[in-house]
Nucleic acid binder design. Structure first.
Lengths: 139, 139
DNA sequence: TATATTAGTGCGTATTACGAACTAATCCAG
DNA sequence: CTGGATTAGTTCGTAATACGCACTAATATA
């Protein structure tokens, strides 16, 4: 779960903040990965569903969002489509491009996983130093 | 651990904070992945080097740190060893177990990548809302 | 209209990850 | 002190992820 909080030169406070940022990020991603796995979703699939939650995108756009190559996304969408989480629809405007969107099933799964995630994330938030946690807008 | 009794219950604002946390984490991991890739290191390899930076571990211990199975770590270490980033040494205490440590080459690469990472992380920090960024020391 | 360009797909390969089966070393009961 | 259980790691087979390259089909442009 964790690269270690290797103590950086104590003089550089910015480096310490960076370390906290990286460490926290690894923790968060570990939680996302675990919650995803409990719903049979890889980290990449979680990201994909999260992105498609509010939009309809072409393959190329999705690849850009994910920072992946089109051939990679093609296979990703293949598997998601086989599981009926997303649907491909040929664009009516451009016969080459594909409009991707969440299926009802995909939407439901995304919502379920998202709720589970919030619950599991609180321990990570609790671990944050007070001054950062205080920036949490709930007060 | 214990929630401050004066603190109001979780709200939409907390959910927004969680979203920021997850989004920022994905951004950070993306940077780590990219910087890693520039040094021919996968995200998992980066984590592994980060962990081994300050310690010597057995395969089982490393697997625990990474949250991976031993068989997975075995292959990971195989490839890292082939690249002479880490060294396996049979424990003198227990003939079954292996002591893993960074090689000089692995240590050098870890330091190089770590410096590159700090530089590349600032844009992510810049993107944070002001009140959280203000919690960054030295600012 | 002929030729680029663009959108996606399919293929071969490497890495990452898992579980199950295996080997070797150590531990422990009797 | 010996033989069965445990423990540490490895190996193997499989699936998902990711890449680059070569390809098809559709659109754009010269």
């Amino acid at each position: 779960m964790a690269t270690d909080p290797a103590r950086p030169p104590a003089s550089d406070a910015t480096a310490a903040f960076m370390d906290l940022l990286v460490q926290t990020s690894f923790d968060v991603i570990a939680v996302v990965t675990r919650v995803g796995a409990e719903h049979d979703l890889s980290l990449t699939l979680v990201r994909m569903l999260g992105i498609l939650r509010d939009r309809t995108l072409t393959m190329a756009e999705l690849a850009d969002y994910l920072g992946l190559k089109r051939s990679t996304v093609s296979g990703l969408v293949d598997r998601a489509e086989r599981r009926e989480l997303v649907a491909r629809r040929t664009s009516s405007v451009d016969g080459r491009s594909v409009q991707l969107s969440l299926s009802p099933k995909g939407m439901a799964l995304t919502n379920t996983a998202s709720i589970a995630l919030s619950a599991r994330l609180s321990p990570v938030v609790e671990k944050l130093p007070g001054n950062i946690r205080d920036a949490c807008p709930s007060r």
